[in-house]
Design a protein around this nucleic acid. Structure first.
Lengths: 207, 207
DNA sequence: GCAGACGCCTGACAAATGTCATGGGCGGGA
DNA sequence: TCCCGCCCATGACATTTGTCAGGCGTCTGC
């Protein structure tokens, strides 16, 4: 018989992490060799335990799952990455693939399909949620420029223009211009809506 | 031997739901008899399967976990409720307890403690995350009046004052007054920040 | 070399937002 | 009963926000 596939799990919610471990451990051909709760612990743990497939959540403290994917692929090329996320934001999929992920699954998918996704990724196949893939193609990349993204990201906290200007070392007028452009591009009617829309599209990732 | 404890799981994320089922099924004295993905399916499913303990997530489509708790306690009093949630919002705990929940656990807690929490709840004990309990006492109830809450909730979408006024059948001036009061009470500096703060405290719950 | 896109800034203007004072109606508690 | 808090509303005001038109420098690709 062949040895079971070695897995690393990364999810900030201990309960979910443990539950996924239980779920995957039911499969005789899978074994969980490492669990971490922070994105910035992924690489070190992968170096130590040499997993063959890593399941990474996107929402994690320290380092988000996309950045962790890139770091892991660079540091431990032998380890394939399956990104698992709560939100089917079209932008997440694109960013994850660009970062070198081998698969992308949303937490809405039935539990029994997860083990299969792991096996597929381990076998070198790409696994992508088909409905999400269509959305991504339709939605395209972010229309926002780097600066606009930055300003919008800073605006999430709900500060005034003066706050943003101070935080970003820009003039207030410039901040207003970038915000105005972002509002126009997102089709929103004000800053708050623009932030929400950009967030829903996954355009604000990667602090 | 005694019969295993019958469980109902409610969580909108199929993967998490399935994983929790796998985790809890590892315990010989527990058995999952029902799974639902929407808050408004909880009562019907509980009537059908007569679980002894229901694990309800707070974030669910149809009906949130708090409202589902109240409905379930009213419809099937024999079934105890353990609320499981992603966010340790102080307000959630208070609201859950008021709705008749027997326990409250955040998804950060270690996986192995979940089964114990289920057993405790089944035995008639109250289970509460201790750190969260302290926070709740410190934070107290929402300082917002009913109308202020309503207005703030409507403001989440990012509409203008005119939009909110139309949606709530109020004059624009009144909406502005309520918003101003909410901004003052939350200590925020504008509408967006007030919404964020109120949300983080769990003050905006209830559709 | 030049056009275009981007970033950065200015200044000005209209619109939206937040604040305040004020007043009337309603209900619950001292 | 009277007071207080909440709700609803008005009108006026200062501030903030969003928009527009410009100008300047840099980089990139034709």
């Amino acid at each position: 018989m062949t040895a079971p596939i070695r897995l690393l799990l990364a999810d900030d919610q201990a309960l979910v992490r443990g539950a996924l471990a239980a779920l995957l451990s039911l499969e005789p051909d899978l074994t969980v060799v490492a669990e971490v709760g922070r994105g910035d612990e992924v690489v070190a743990e992968a170096r130590r335990t040499a997993p063959e497939v890593a399941l990474l959540d996107v929402e994690m403290p320290g380092l988000d799952g996309i950045a962790a994917t890139a770091a892991l692929r660079a540091a431990v090329p032998a380890c394939r990455v399956l990104v698992v996320t709560t939100f089917g934001r079209p932008g997440y999929l694109r960013r994850a693939m660009e970062a070198g992920a081998n698969g992308f699954v949303v937490k809405d998918t039935p539990a029994r399909q997860l083990a299969d996704a792991v096996r597929r990724v381990h076998a070198g196949l790409r696994v992508v949620d088909p409905t999400l893939a269509a959305e991504t193609l339709a939605a395209g990349a972010s229309p926002l420029t780097e600066r606009e993204t930055e300003v919008l990201r800073a605006a999430r906290g709900g500060g005034t223009v003066a706050d943003l200007a101070a935080a970003l070392h820009l003039s207030e007028g410039t901040v207003r211009n970038h915000l105005s452009a972002a509002i126009g591009k997102t089709g929103a009617r004000n800053r708050a809506a623009a932030v929400r829309i950009a967030e829903e599209h996954g355009w604000l990732l990667g602090d």
